[in-house]
Amino acid sequence: MKIKCLLIDDEPFALNILEDDLLSFDKVEILHKFNSPIDVVDYLRDHEVDLIFLDIQMPEKLGTQFIRELTNPPLFIFTTAYHQYAVEGFELNAVDYLLKPIAKERLTSAIRKVEDIMLLRANQNNIVDHIVVNVEYKKIKIFINEISYIEGLKDYVKIYMVNRNAPLLTRSNLRGMEKILPVKDFLRIHNSYIVNKNRIQHVALTKLTLPEIALPVGKKYVGNIEIF
């Protein structure tokens, strides 16, 4: 199980040091480095990210503010030279709070925490039979086998049900939905679509057919279809 991560720090030297330290961890895969959190939002919409290492004191936006603004943030670890943000960091449910210069044993401990959380989530995915979403200020319980497919609309998603004409609209994004849906039952096929594997009738390289609709398959998701 690889931990796919992003590094965010306005100081290139600090980024390079953290990258070098993380290269010694076989289970860590560095997807991208950023000098500003502002550039990260679009990347998160299009890529599956497990973990973000981010500085707090950055000129364009504080790391804590950036996390607060994300609808469904990945796991995250603050890396900073300042003690005073520690309480706020843990209030935001940070996995860890690492002070620069980062000691190797502290970094190792933080990575182990991430592995434990990801393993727990994977085990939970194996037994999930429903999800709970907010719809019009109410929490709605939806059984997994009632979902046909999900369409992403930037900060909202439409959940199309098997025996319901109108979709349910909830504030989230497809990356957030992927985190709560069981992997064994759902498949990302496009920047805009997740489908219930059990509803798939026919598969082609550019199109996937469900009983009620044919959906496009994005180029970068063809590999998912081939595995399926």
Rank of each mutant, 00 (worst) to 15 (best):
residue 64 T to Y: 00
residue 120 L to A: 08
residue 216 P to Q: 11
residue 158 K to N: 14
residue 221 Y to W: 12
residue 162 V to T: 06
residue 177 M to T: 05
residue 16 N to Y: 13
residue 101 P to L: 13
residue 24 S to R: 15
residue 44 L to K: 06
residue 56 I to P: 02
residue 204 A to F: 12
residue 92 L to T: 10
residue 198 N to H: 14
residue 85 Y to A: 05
residue 6 L to F: 04
residue 114 V to S: 08
residue 132 V to G: 03
residue 15 L to N: 14
residue 62 L to T: 14
residue 169 L to D: 01
residue 90 F to A: 05
residue 154 K to Q: 09
residue 77 I to Q: 08
residue 122 A to Y: 11
residue 41 V to R: 14
residue 183 V to C: 10
residue 102 I to C: 12
residue 30 I to W: 12
residue 169 L to F: 07
residue 154 K to D: 10
residue 226 E to F: 13
residue 218 G to V: 07
residue 53 F to Y: 10
residue 52 I to T: 01
residue 111 I to G: 05
residue 115 E to V: 07
residue 58 M to W: 06
residue 111 I to F: 03
residue 37 P to L: 09
residue 129 D to E: 13
residue 123 N to Q: 14
residue 35 N to C: 11
residue 132 V to Q: 09
residue 70 L to C: 03
residue 203 V to I: 13
residue 200 I to N: 02
residue 118 M to W: 00
residue 46 D to S: 10
residue 118 M to P: 00
residue 120 L to R: 08
residue 139 K to D: 08
residue 108 T to G: 11
residue 133 V to Y: 12
residue 97 Y to P: 05
residue 5 C to E: 01
residue 228 F to W: 06
residue 46 D to K: 09
residue 82 Y to F: 14
residue 54 L to A: 08
residue 184 K to V: 04
residue 148 S to C: 06
residue 163 N to D: 06
residue 36 S to T: 15
residue 98 L to K: 10
residue 133 V to M: 02
residue 184 K to M: 03
residue 27 K to E: 15
residue 104 K to N: 12
residue 68 R to P: 00
residue 159 I to Y: 10
residue 45 R to V: 02
residue 54 L to I: 05
residue 147 I to M: 07
residue 89 G to W: 00
residue 36 S to L: 05
residue 15 L to W: 09
residue 29 E to H: 04
residue 57 Q to P: 02
residue 210 L to T: 01
residue 93 N to A: 09
residue 25 F to M: 12
residue 163 N to H: 09
residue 37 P to F: 07
residue 15 L to A: 08
residue 74 P to T: 02
residue 75 L to Y: 03
residue 149 Y to P: 00
residue 132 V to K: 11
residue 24 S to N: 15
residue 49 V to I: 07
residue 206 T to M: 15
residue 29 E to G: 01
residue 111 I to M: 10
residue 10 D to L: 03
residue 55 D to W: 00
residue 15 L to S: 06
residue 149 Y to K: 11
residue 154 K to G: 02
residue 228 F to H: 07
residue 69 E to M: 09
residue 214 A to R: 13
residue 148 S to K: 08
residue 93 N to V: 03
residue 204 A to W: 09
residue 98 L to G: 09
residue 212 E to S: 14
residue 124 Q to C: 10
residue 53 F to T: 04
residue 76 F to R: 12
residue 174 L to E: 01
residue 205 L to V: 15
residue 112 R to E: 15
residue 200 I to H: 01
residue 124 Q to S: 11
residue 175 R to L: 04
residue 210 L to R: 06
residue 22 L to D: 14
residue 27 K to D: 12
residue 184 K to T: 08
residue 161 M to Q: 11
residue 95 V to D: 04
residue 41 V to L: 09
residue 183 V to K: 15
residue 173 N to A: 00
residue 39 D to F: 07
residue 114 V to W: 05
residue 179 K to F: 02
residue 6 L to G: 02
